[in-house]
Design a protein around this nucleic acid. Structure first.
Lengths: 214, 214, 214, 214
DNA sequence: TCGTAACCGAGACGGTACGTCTGGTCTTTTT
DNA sequence: AAAAAGACCAGACGTACCGTCTCGGTTACGA
């Protein structure tokens, strides 16, 4: 059903005492390592379960027992690679926070492997609704909640209006960055980061005098 | 090499006079129609050359003779579907122009089939460098040039500074929209369009007092 | 190595006293019952250890601890099914004995399950040399010894010559029957049984005047 | 449905002119050669489509396009190997004919590869009803018709009664031989051949005085 | 009464082969 | 020379079983 890693059976009540041979954590690690290597080398589109299994020294069924699809495996590999690279900055100003946050995103994404994995996952999610849900819930929403904190702190400091549309603000900030990542029409430079943040901060700060309703 | 449709041979010298049976324009149309149907029904990930050929009543080679890959065919089908839906508005104000442009993009993308095709093409381009180039050159850059005109007119009218970074402005405008399209975490409502445009216009308009350099 | 049921360890000297938990006779019975059911339903080719284990409510290792292969298990199930159905007739004449023996074989083999098991075992033995040996030693030779008794009694009575080749006689008698069972080209009717016995008895009885040696 | 080699489509009427690329006869040959090799080396139980395809340098689908199952392929390979080895002798006496026929069968079966293929096919047919039908129709019945000719000639010569049950006679002759082949309990010697033929001829020749009806 | 040994059911393990599907190419006859 | 048709080689798909191996637990014997 879902795209989450398949848990071992008998999640049970108080003390269920799982039966049968337990899942091998060594196989877990070998599979994720192999998947990460293949993803870095050839991208998600070029990753086959067959190859990951061979490279990890594992039977295919051992992978299918844990993840329902190629995308689900890639998602977990990506999360392991990406997660602690995204700290929540607290510099005292909205501009400083956004700069730090976007910079660390860009650094993660342009450095080695996370960028290719990320692009591949978004691509896969377009054709795999289960993965799309997992991607949204486990990556997108989780990051957005983190980042919304920065904006709420700015509201608390009076830097931006209390009725600021946080969703749109985040869409503009990260949307611009994803745009360059996925289309590749312009590079993800630091100048880009600074300008995006400046325009966004200015746009959020400016008193919206009177917006016509057309 | 490229992903452009393959032209009939003998682009020729002074004496074109192509020999042999000419390409069937009926086959062209049948292929594009079949491709468009399959794309609308199952997305690019679910489209196989095999199926398009069968549905168009055409041999696979007849498709490969014209387009080098699944993505190239989808790109042409998309362009036929999408192209004249994107007029260049001229309302007299930057805000009006951006609103009109983004609205027509959103309308095209949420209505009918273009949205699914577009997402599928971006996905495919992540795994097909040739298609990525074609996508950039034939769709992204072409639209950006169109839209840059609106921004240059605004500069001409003195609405925004002359040194405005047009690339970043467009990335924020369309990036936010692509973001919602590809991740599906929030809907592409008209309120979204208005807020994006308002924040962007405000951000571009505001005098950048003193930007610290960090 | 062999295909015999694996005996519990400690075949022991003077002091048997096997340690550890003894084999569960209930498991023995459940496995053989399940195997017999599956064999009757789908034949040996359609029987998997996996299914027998599941149906018997037993772990696969519990089966492998007792029998080294699918064929060995099937052989034991067959023997339990087949054994006491083959009495040694003693009617006073060779013809009467052979008729009774072949009739009871045909009855066992055309009735319910033994026929399918038998055919499946012969098939399996073609690809499993261990099973072939076990089959020969435990089924074929044992039956032949039984049946040879009938022929020796006929020699004793003077019905057939003392130098009759008993092996060939048995091969002709049962070979004809196996032939129909395995190829299915003709049915195993009682008329068939009678004719085989008549021709064989006549052939054995006739004084072989002078056989040319070519 | 059947187990016959799958014919190319459009067997057609007068002049159908089959369309599309024709089946590659080179592939036909390579597949049959590879199958024969594997069968000789490991028997039918040890032959996988995967290996035959690899050894023939052919895609698996190219095999499945021609033969519906492993058994069907093996059957064709066997027929090519076995066919012209079985002449129809005509020595002038029943005994001479039967000796010659059974001797050439034994020679084919104990020499080289046909014996292993034959045993494997009979085994496979026990678990594959389609193959069983094909085996019966294409091998068993065809040989029986051939061999029945010898018996009918003997009737014509007055060697055996006109109401002899030819089916039973053939079952006893070949049944005895198959019996030794499949069970391996005794070797297929020439002495065996002679004794079988002698007993059979004597049994058929003897005037059946009065057979009781029990 | 304890410890140790062999069993038990369950189920994961690394593998092999299955039969299907699609990719992109090649080879026919027909237009 | 291009068309439709369909076969070609290649190889991934997800499934089913193989025979072995861990688990937590049970049941016997011998110390």
């Amino acid at each position: 059903m879902s795209t989450a890693p398949i848990p071992p059976p008998e999640p049970g009540s108080g003390e269920p005492a799982r039966r049968g041979r337990p899942r091998s954590e060594q196989a877990d690690r070998a599979i994720l390592r192999a998947a990460t290597e293949v993803l870095a080398a050839r991208g998600l589109g070029g990753m086959s379960i067959e190859e990951v299994a061979a490279r990890a020294g594992v039977g295919k069924a051992t992978i299918y027992r844990r993840w329902p699809s190629r995308g689900a495996l890639a998602l977990e590999a990506f999360r392991a690679e990406f997660k602690e690279q995204q700290p929540l900055p607290d510099t005292g100003t909205l501009r400083g926070d956004l700069l730090a946050a976007l910079r660390s995103w860009v650094r993660a994404v342009t450095g080695s492997r996370a960028g290719r994995m990320l692009a591949g996952l978004i691509a896969e999610a377009q054709n795999d609704p289960e993965l799309a849900v997992a991607w949204r819930e486990q990556v997108v929403e989780r990051l957005r909640e983190q980042h919304a904190i920065m904006l709420r702190r700015a509201i608390g400091r009076g830097e931006i209006p209390a009725d600021t549309d946080l969703d749109v603000a985040l869409d503009m900030l990260y949307g611009a960055a994803y745009h360059r990542l996925l289309h590749g029409h312009r590079p993800l430079t630091d100048a880009f980061v600074r300008t995006v943040v400046d325009v966004l901060v200015a746009g959020l700060t400016a008193r919206p005098a009177q917006r016509p309703q057309d």
